[in-house]
Computed example of a mutant assay.
Amino acid sequence: MSDAVLLDVADGVATITLNRPDVRNAIDLPTSLAIAECLDEVDERPDIAVAVLTGAGSTFCAGMDLKAFAATQERPIHDRRGAFGIVRQPCEKPLIAAIEGKALGGGLEIALACDLVVAADSSRLGLPEVKRGLVAAAGGVLRLPRRIPQAVAMEMILTGEPLTAEQARGWGLVNRVAPDGQALAIARQLAAAVAANAPLAVRAAKRIALDSADWAADEAFDRQVAYTDPVRSSSDAAEGARAFVEKRAPRWTGS
């Protein structure tokens, strides 16, 4: 795995670190491939329940590495996971963004590919592409109106102006605001709360929440059965019931 992306695993939580602080963690093609490789490993390893994505140094991610693109003409796109190795197909397990500094353009699009967001108090989140004659086509204009009220999303998209961390939390884009320098620590606390739950149930719940966005109302309950029946009949479901009756912490096996 590339040194541009680091993976650390402890207590069921994977920490993925974009490790290019000298270019504000901008993404070139090798880095996008390394991100996709990390997400593959997160999905495949049974000892990982949830992942946290963060950036080294003072910036979460500056989006595409324009200098690298100018030199190579290679866009940072993975053939399956899409731009930046993540935006088209994030990992199946829960993913939490831990943002310090700026998450603008592609940086915010990477955060929007995550399920939960923790942002440091002085961080800024925005899509400034229109200021540069571009469109936030790596998920920005697609996902932002689905995460926050459309009027707010449209103002961000059309003006290119960012939100503060507190504003983003007020509109539901950010789950937790952390003191500067503590976003990763708070994100890991949130990840630990997720990792304490039954892994099959967590993955199925995430999948339903995302896949059901375009389900017809009169079909939704029937369609979720394919996701929920395997969980209901799992060993973990039985263990959860036993642990409740016996007043102890459950011992999940992921089966």
Rank of each mutant, 00 (worst) to 15 (best):
G181Y: 09
R80V: 14
A205K: 03
V194L: 12
D65T: 06
R132K: 14
P76N: 09
Y227H: 14
V141M: 13
A193S: 13
T17W: 09
A237M: 14
L33S: 03
F69A: 03
V245H: 03
E161K: 12
K131I: 07
T59V: 15
T15H: 11
I35Q: 05
A34L: 03
G133E: 08
T253G: 10
I16E: 03
L6F: 09
D222I: 08
N19Q: 06
G140D: 09
F84P: 00
V130P: 06
V52G: 04
C114V: 01
R81A: 03
A178C: 08
P90N: 05
A120M: 06
A249Q: 12
L53I: 14
D3K: 09
A183V: 04
T159C: 05
L134I: 08
A187G: 08
F244W: 06
N25L: 05
G57S: 08
A120Q: 02
L158I: 00
A195K: 02
G140S: 10
I148V: 15
A178S: 09
R75T: 10
A71Q: 14
G160R: 03
A14P: 00
I77E: 14
L66K: 12
N175G: 10
L39F: 14
H78T: 04
Q150P: 00
A237P: 08
P250K: 00
A113K: 05
L66G: 13
D65Y: 01
A217I: 10
A217T: 14
V118S: 05
P46N: 12
D229S: 13
C91D: 00
A191S: 11
D11T: 05
P90K: 01
K102I: 04
N25F: 05
A196Q: 11
K131A: 13
L158V: 09
L33Y: 04
D229L: 12
Y227N: 07
D3E: 12
T228R: 05
V174E: 10
A241S: 09
T164K: 06
P149R: 11
